[in-house]
């Protein structure tokens, strides 16, 4: 039966047939079944965000009514307004947003630059002690961040003593550890992506007269753009959501979004769920939209350019 449906589907609209790339998806070719699954997956994945949006529109009394109010009676944006105007020692959530953007972006760029070089070396070059060096790189990421909190603090203090650079209490105190602590995972992931590119490509380039490093820059790097971008997203979101260092190495002016949200939404005993969810929605939605847009633009743009050049 599935077979017949599959043929019918193919005959009708081959271009948008489900899984034209992977033939097997055609057993699902009944559109209804497909979109039912999509609906379920989307509901599950979006669930807390949907509930957050609803809660953020409720009045304070509705957020803790027993049993819970499912839909706000009089949806209002008061919680958003409060989240935006809550003053923490002279700083507002906009500042924390900016801090998060700067910290996550700068440290992601640094991590990706360093990891790219190292991953290429691990994936493509022959050198002595390769597995031992990889083990060291990996091992340094295996201690729980909690155990690293105070030792890294001492290094940050040391940076001031020796170099005169004040890191502790500034966003630099986050950029430095994030840039380094993201390295092992970024390297591991990038190695896998480098592996997928056929060896012949760079050999061909080298026969054409490029040096090894030129081949890396001009041939391999463009081809790994999708993998590079995926890795960058992973590193970026990891930095964006980090809480422990962001709490402990900062002053109010350098708080990042997660710390800011927790601070504005809770008092000693009571959590203001309206503000908490409003702030979370404001933190998450722009981030996801931005990633989706960037992914579409950058990845398609760069890969297209790479093929031409």
């Amino acid at each position: 039966m599935a077979h017949i449906a599959e043929q019918a589907d193919q005959a009708r609209e081959p271009s948008i047939a489900v899984g034209s790339k992977q033939p097997g998806w055609r057993f699902l070719s009944s559109r209804a079944a497909l979109y039912l699954i999509v609906a379920v997956v989307v509901l599950v994945q979006f669930f807390p965000i949907i509930w957050s949006v609803l809660t953020s529109l409720m009045s304070p009394a509705e957020t803790t009514s027993i049993p819970a109010t499912l839909l706000p009676a009089h949806p209002s944006l008061t919680n958003y307004q409060q989240a935006l105007t809550s003053d923490i020692g002279g700083f507002k959530i906009g500042q924390f947003y900016l801090n998060s953007v700067i910290v996550s972006t700068v440290s992601t760029i640094v991590t990706m630059f360093l990891a790219m070089l190292a991953a290429y070396a691990f994936a493509r070059l022959n050198f002595r002690f390769k597995s031992q060096i990889l083990l060291i790189v990996l091992a340094l990421s295996l201690f729980p961040p909690l155990a690293q909190l105070i030792p890294i603090l001492r290094i940050l203090i040391l940076s001031k003593t020796i170099l005169g650079i004040q890191l502790f209490g500034t966003i630099g105190a986050l950029i430095v550890p994030y840039s380094v602590l993201g390295l092992p995972l970024a390297i591991l992931i990038l190695i896998a992506f480098f592996q997928e590119i056929p060896k012949d490509l760079e050999e061909a380039a080298m026969i054409d007269g490029m040096s090894r490093f030129q081949a890396f820059l001009r041939v391999i790097l463009p081809l790994t753009i999708p993998g590079f971008f995926t890795t960058a997203i992973i590193v970026f979101v990891g930095n964006w959501n980090e809480y422990l260092f962001a709490l402990n190495y900062t002053t109010t002016s350098s708080y990042t979004l997660p710390v800011g949200i927790v601070t504005i939404s809770q008092s000693e005993y009571v959590t203001n769920f309206g503000i908490l969810t409003a702030a979370t929605v404001m933190a998450v939605v722009p981030l996801v939209v931005l990633i989706l847009l960037l992914e579409r633009r950058i990845v398609s743009g760069l890969t297209a350019g790479a093929v031409k050049g």
């Binding site: 989307v42 959501n241 809480y243 979004l257 949200i261 702030a279 979370t280 998450v284």
Partner: peptide, 22 residues
Amino acid sequence: KFPGRWVLRAAILFPWAIPTAT
């Protein structure tokens, strides 16, 4: 490949983009 699959891509990103702390 099907129309509207960007929704699924967004669905992949959402859970992960919510700060763990909140």
